[in-house]
Simulated scan of single mutants.
Amino acid sequence: MPRVPRPAVVAAAALALGTLAIAPATGDGPAVTDPRVVTHFDLTRGQSPENIALAPDGSADLTLSNARQVVNVTRQGRTRLIATLPEVANPHTPVVGAAVVLGIARAQDGTLFVTYATGTAETGVWRIPARGGKPRQIAQLPPAGFPNGLALDERRGVLYAADSVLGTVWRVPRAGGAPTAWATGAALEPRNPRPAAKVGANGLRFHRGAVWVSNTNAGTLLRIPVREDGSAGAIGTRATGLYAIDDFGFVDRHRDTALAALTGGSEVELVRPDGTHRVVLTPGDGLSNATSVAVRGRTAYVTSAAYFTRRDPNLLLARVHQRDRD
């Protein structure tokens, strides 16, 4: 989530104290070692890296929320601008007030999709052509909402977007068109009474036939099965006590073990299928309000947006050693 006004920082701290205690970890799990920051960004230019989509060559496409940009970063740290979302006059974005680009998903053909929250008619899902080009809005979402995490189901040809304010998972045709409120309910809704800190459904991944969603205020990781007809099954809570969780990524495509970015504490936690979790990366490793995680092979990619620390937004890489026997 992007930077919020100073009173909301206090609210976020209160939220952190109010979340459930971290559950003890049981059994072995993948080890995360050798963290290194490969790219540093510039807060004065709005470069807060928010979300990650991995390219086949091992580079990472990142959204820079306040800069309204999408960039590509190689494993060696070289950065290239892909696109800039259009400036919006008089944005009225919930939570943050400014126009921000948030979630990102990458199709197999290289097309990128992002969520853009503006508080205006430009709020929604935008498409960026493969190899870059002019972004184009393909679906409008409610201006009163805050579209955040985004994932693509290639087989069904649909996108899923988490709305942090309206407590909704939207479903949008990949080709564009009218969105559908695919999943709603108390488990997706924000819990904080302060408008500037109301962040419910946030991170989102499509994994093993289900849509997985984090709820930042609740500190939970949720799983919503996709039924054969494409409708949403019952929302299940898979983990609790994840202090100010933002986005997350799965360690591999065959298991439900995840790495979750905890933005409030600048940590990454390993979340096991039984819901237990433990810290594997900390501020000492270079994290500064971690926002998202993506994993490919033995490499974990972690973005830090520095929304509250105001120090060193960056992209960090670490090694993942597969020891999980689940």
Rank of each mutant, 00 (worst) to 15 (best):
A197K: 01
T168P: 05
A175V: 13
A187G: 06
T168I: 14
R171T: 08
P179H: 11
R171K: 10
A161N: 07
G185L: 13
V169F: 06
V165G: 09
A161Q: 04
A161R: 09
P190K: 09
G176Y: 08
P193T: 07
G176N: 06
R156V: 12
V169H: 01
P179K: 05
A196H: 04
G176H: 06
L166W: 06
A197F: 00
A162N: 06
A161L: 08
P173N: 12
P173W: 11
E154Q: 10
W182V: 14
A186D: 15
A186H: 12
T180Y: 05
A178W: 05
T180E: 15
R194E: 00
L166H: 04
T184P: 01
T180D: 08
R156C: 02
P195D: 03
G177V: 00
L188S: 05
W170I: 05
A178I: 05
A183R: 12
A187R: 12
S164P: 04
G157Q: 12
P173I: 07
T184N: 14
P190F: 02
D163K: 08
A183L: 15
W182E: 10
G167T: 09
G167M: 11
A196R: 07
R155L: 14
A178H: 15
R156Y: 07
G157W: 13
T184D: 10
R194L: 14
L166I: 02
